[in-house]
Design a protein around this nucleic acid. Structure first.
Lengths: 218, 218
DNA sequence: ATGCATATAGAATGGCCGTTCTAGAACACG
DNA sequence: CGTGTTCTAGAACGGCCATTCTATATGCAT
């Protein structure tokens, strides 16, 4: 019922993502987003209640795609495949990867008031990713226990005995922080991601155990 | 000759570093720095010609300490010791490490006009660090060549044949990006840096070669 | 046709921030 | 004991930005 919109929410989101990817979050002013969309600034407020809501919506869409790319491998207990899914996803959508990278530290919507459904979706994504990660961690722990049982009666193998916190930190690095650190230079430079990034990830996974002897701690 | 200053340049720098470490770069407004120092905003401009100059000076001081902590090990060709020097330095000055981390992407003084001596010092530090890094890379290459000669007549060992770009990228990750990625969660959370961070760095250096068969490429 | 809800269009508002300006104070030196 | 220079002190200025407001257009439902 009534006047049809010339500017869609998606158009504003796309403009915001492009600006952030090109020039960083602080360049994504309402004026810049409007200019890039060919719209007046006021029209943005017919779709989003604030700049924070707009950017958070953009973040949520991109982060959702990220989670969908990574979570299945995690749920399958395959940490290496999950790590490689990150590089694959980044290769497929460089702008999105750059956007996510530049908004890592939560500087985007720190304490800003967001619409409730958006907050709920953000939490849902975070919980889904965390649950998948925990599943992967549990699988690694089980494998470590089985390996230990096979090798000898009770003493841990040549790996180091680690606690749960350490195992989680190790897994986080192997799956997320390490691959992201490998991608960062290329994402920031805007150049293609070379194949040896994947090779290094594979080497790391082969050499650095997630849970070397976690079963001993249980 | 004349009135003695109540507020030193160092006081403003310390205030700026503390604010950035606590609340991020955008919180370090001239007003906030002045308030934290107990000075009027105008007084800051008797020491620094602009906000960019102030923050860049703070960055340069911290980065200089970082370089001094890391470069000697690099010049000695010891990549592992260099990587561990980063964690050691971060443990010794958490605020400084946080400051550096939060200003990685050069968002601090992007195209801002800076006094020439400051620019020169920044460039000098960057060149010193890069030279040390290149020395470390060259040492790794020499060791790889020697290892190859010892093992067999001409074919590369079980390592992967890599080019110069890849060797540099590998070394960068082993020395800088990897350790920093391991530190990031603890720096951002403001919690103590656990010992297993160093253990993982050592594992990585043991397992992921900087220049596996670089000599074959020369 | 005529309402009327919803859009465009862009000017106006108010706040924050970096920077500058005005006034006055302190101190080394002649 | 001025005098000049460098400081404190904080108000004032100008720009940018998010947000709101006013005026006008559009097109479906009646």
């Amino acid at each position: 019922m009534v006047r049809l919109a010339r500017f869609s929410a998606d158009a504003f989101l796309a403009a915001a993502v492009a600006i952030v990817a090109e020039s960083g979050p602080s360049a994504a002013t309402m004026g810049a987003i409007a200019r890039r969309s060919g719209a007046p600034t006021g029209s943005i407020y017919h779709r989003f209640e604030s700049r924070a809501a707009l950017l958070a919506t953009a973040w949520t869409g991109i982060h959702g795609a990220f989670v969908e790319a990574v979570a299945p491998s995690l749920r399958a207990g395959d940490a290496l495949r999950a790590a490689l899914a990150i590089t694959g996803w980044a290769r497929g959508d460089a702008d999105a990867a750059r956007f996510l990278l530049l908004n890592e530290s939560g500087a985007l919507f720190d304490g800003a008031p967001l619409p409730d459904p958006l907050r709920a979706e953000i939490r849902r994504q975070e919980e889904e990713l965390d649950a998948a990660f925990q599943a992967c961690l549990a699988a690694a722990r089980d494998r470590a226990a089985a390996r230990m049982e096979r090798q000898d009666g009770g003493k841990p193998p040549d790996g180091i005995r680690v606690g749960v916190d350490e195992a989680a930190a190790r897994a986080r690095f192997l799956v997320f922080d390490g691959p992201i650190a490998l991608l960062r230079p290329y994402l920031l430079a805007g150049t293609e991601i070379p194949g040896h990034v994947d090779r290094m990830i594979a080497e790391m996974h082969g050499a650095v155990p997630v849970a070397p002897a976690l079963a001993a701690v249980h």
